[in-house]
């Protein structure tokens, strides 16, 4: 008897067993559909073999003062530059308030090895490779790197000085294994 009154009371509320079944069934299907989307979205992320190329060793013994080389890490270009004392002094001379992305050269190099400037060769604007690493290339108005795509100028510490790029060239994680070998990544 009680259950019958319950049911009639519920019908008066406008809630039926079938409403509950509808909501439960549609919710269950919705959760299932959302669960299927996860792998479909996740497959777009870098695969294991792409992630596996995450460290690169570089021999820097042949780079003379004032020279730079281009190498690659995770399929992205990396600039390794042996700064001259003049270039280091120039970078130290700039007041931080003049910089769009304020960083000192010491923050961008390893202690005691501040002549070694290691950055990604990827312009922080839209990802072109800036010029200035190879001999004779345009080094821009500040003697560092110049991106030909949209005209960003970087200084001798690869800091952004002029043009549309918002950030300094990225310093990747790296360590000196010895005086002549660096591991990036």
């Amino acid at each position: 008897m009680t259950s019958e009154t319950d049911i009639s009371a519920r019908i008066e509320d406008g809630v039926r067993r079938r409403d509950f079944i509808n909501i439960a069934a549609v919710s269950f299907a919705g959760v299932g559909a959302a669960a299927v989307v996860l792998p479909l979205v996740n497959q777009m992320n870098p695969s294991a073999d792409v992630l596996a190329q995450s460290t690169t060793e570089i021999d820097i013994s042949a780079i003379q003062s004032g020279q730079a080389i281009k190498t690659s890490w995770r399929k992205q270009p990396v600039f390794v530059r042996n700064l001259t004392p003049v270039e280091i002094a120039e970078a130290k001379k700039v007041p931080l308030s003049d910089l769009r992305d304020p960083q000192t050269i010491d923050e961008r190099t390893k202690p005691g090895k501040e002549n070694w400037l290691i950055t990604l060769g990827v312009c922080t604007h839209l990802g072109c490779v800036p010029l200035g690493a190879a001999e004779g290339e345009n080094r821009g108005d500040f003697g560092g790197y110049f991106c030909p795509c949209h005209g960003s100028h970087y200084d001798t510490a690869a800091r952004i000085r002029k043009g549309p790029a918002p950030k300094n060239l990225v310093v990747p994680p790296y360590e000196f294994n010895s005086d002549t070998v660096v591991t990036i990544g």
């Binding site: 870098p46 990827v122 990802g127």
Partner: peptide, 24 residues
Amino acid sequence: ITGFFSAIPVVGDPIRVWLLGGFA
């Protein structure tokens, strides 16, 4: 063009990596 997406604050770079399935 995929670099456009890295302009988005905070999530921009992960979105770009997701679109490319790699770092470049």
